[in-house]
Amino acid sequence: MAAKYYRDERAARRQPVLISRSSQGVEEGYRLVGPGGALTPIISHVQWLDNHPDGPDTHVMISFADGTNVEFPFDVRLAAIWYDEQRAVSDTDLLEAAPIVWGAPAEPWCQASRRGL
């Protein structure tokens, strides 16, 4: 079953194709430009990790529609694109938007915290 996103799609289409966001500011319904300029699956959930060992408001878990998760420290600059963007984006633009820093693959925070990690 395909995911459906009900945020203001018209507003998303009025933005530039690639938008710059901090890791804690990305939203569901977008795809990120990952390392090497590849697009990630659609973001399905973003959760601030309040009980993170480094303290509250320091890390965010981004969960993707394919079931993968990436944990980012706050303030990592990322480029996002609306999941259903129809405007063309060149490979050059994607490469230029690729992040300098990428997060770490992770399992959902609730599973890790249950095991005491």
Rank of each mutant, 00 (worst) to 15 (best):
Y5S: 15
Y6I: 14
R7N: 15
E9G: 12
E9S: 13
E9R: 14
R10G: 15
R10N: 15
R10T: 15
A12D: 06
A12T: 04
Q15P: 06
Q15C: 13
Q15L: 08
P16W: 13
V17Y: 00
I19D: 00
I19V: 06
S20V: 10
R21N: 04
S23T: 09
S23F: 00
S23K: 02
Q24L: 09
V26P: 01
V26L: 00
G29T: 05
G29E: 12
Y30R: 00
Y30F: 11
R31L: 03
L32E: 01
V33M: 03
G36R: 05
G37V: 09
G37F: 01
G37D: 01
A38P: 14
A38S: 13
L39G: 05
L39M: 06
L39P: 01
T40N: 01
P41R: 06
I42Q: 11
I42N: 12
I43R: 03
S44L: 12
S44E: 09
S44T: 12
V46H: 06
V46A: 13
V46R: 09
W48S: 11
L49W: 07
L49G: 05
N51C: 05
N51S: 14
P53E: 10
D54L: 11
D54R: 07
G55Y: 06
P56M: 05
P56G: 00
P56S: 10
D57G: 05
H59S: 02
V60R: 03
V60C: 08
V60S: 07
V60W: 01
M61E: 03
M61K: 01
I62S: 11
I62N: 06
S63F: 00
F64K: 01
F64N: 01
F64P: 05
A65R: 12
A65N: 14
A65M: 14
D66V: 13
D66K: 09
G67S: 05
T68N: 03
T68L: 03
V70D: 04
V70A: 04
V70M: 06
V70S: 07
V70E: 02
V70I: 09
E71A: 05
E71G: 12
E71W: 02
F72C: 10
P73W: 03
F74N: 07
F74V: 12
V76L: 07
